[in-house]
Design a protein around this nucleic acid. Structure first.
Length: 294
DNA sequence: CGCCAGGCTAGCG
DNA sequence: CGCTAGCATGGC
């Protein structure tokens, strides 16, 4: 086992690990105390996952991120948590309205994640009409049932299934894992990826072309595509229009409602500051979802 | 019991 | 193109 630390003071804008991993962006981590998405901050608990075949354990202790891994996973952590992002610079693009001020203070230290593309694609296909905590349980079941097992220090950890592993599961199996009507979407999309069409191939295209590319996957509309672009492929301008943001538009930005998803999306992207509108949206989403601000 | 959750697809006009 | 019924599941 390798271990190490990352000084939070050296990160521009620091980090709040709890907010970053429990704000409904990433569903690939679990908490060693089993209290994920219960609204409680971990005290001594670790966040744990398997990425690229490596076990990663990380927790926040005072002014450090402490990590353990099957090898030196610090570069992996820096990549996954976007530790190189200059948070103050990004948040300085937030418009000056009370909603944004509240969200910025409420979620101070939250970083947008950079998760691997295939798990993100499947996670957000599963997210349709589903609460955050339940998306996490669905994805955890997929990992524990279908993914590789990797051990660290005598304990087992589970990777998200590969496209081949997920494609090999029947729709019936996926329904037993409580995916509901999303089971055939996941099965069909896993099959597409296993046979050569990869979501990461959306990268490099213009934002709207990348979004269109992703909608070829079964169960992926424009909203899910925006989530993949923002939380995996680094399109920080992508603003997913979910029910929370739609309610906020209705109540606070009614003039941004242009009817279609694409037109409303473009309008709200400007309302949210443009280049980093998706980053801003992630703060607003977490603020709205976990308070009674609406 | 009804309502809602990080929506999408297929079928219709 | 836009509109809508139907779709699983569990917590409140």
């Amino acid at each position: 086992m390798e271990t190490g630390t990352i000084d939070i003071d050296e990160l521009a804008g620091g980090i709040d690990l709890y907010l970053t991993l429990e704000s409904g962006q990433s569903y690939l981590w679990t908490r060693s105390d089993g209290q994920m998405y219960t609204g409680t901050r971990p005290e001594d608990a670790w966040y744990e996952t398997v990425i690229d075949g490596e076990v990663i354990r990380v927790r926040q202790q005072d002014d450090q991120l402490v990590w353990q891994g099957t090898r030196d996973v610090e570069p992996l952590i820096r990549d996954l948590l976007r530790l190189d992002d200059d948070l103050p610079a990004i948040l300085s693009t937030m418009p000056t309205a009370p909603l944004f001020e509240h969200a910025r203070h409420y979620a101070s230290g939250l970083r947008v994640v950079r998760d691997p593309a295939f798990p993100t694609l499947i996670s957000f296909i599963c997210s349709a009409q589903m609460r955050v905590s339940r998306i996490h349980s669905m994805i955890t079941r997929l990992r524990e049932t279908l993914g590789d097992t990797v051990t660290l220090d005598g304990r087992s950890y589970h990777a998200f299934p590969t496209p081949d592993q997920l494609a090999a599961a029947s729709e019936e199996t996926l329904r037993e894992l409580k995916l509901g009507y999303r089971a055939p979407y996941v099965a069909d999309t896993a099959d597409m990826v296993a046979t050569g069409t990869h979501p990461a191939d959306a990268a490099g295209r213009s934002y709207e072309a990348a979004r269109e590319f992703l909608t070829q996957f079964v169960g992926v509309g424009q909203k899910v595509a925006d989530c993949v672009l923002l939380f995996s492929l680094g399109y920080l301008e992508a603003v997913p229009l979910d029910t929370w943001i739609r309610t906020a538009i209705e109540q606070r930005f009614p003039d941004a409602d242009r009817g279609s998803y694409a037109a409303t999306s473009a309008a709200i992207r400007e309302k949210f500051g443009g280049e980093y509108a998706g980053y801003v949206q992630t703060y607003v989403f977490h603020y709205l979802r976990t308070t009674d601000a609406l």
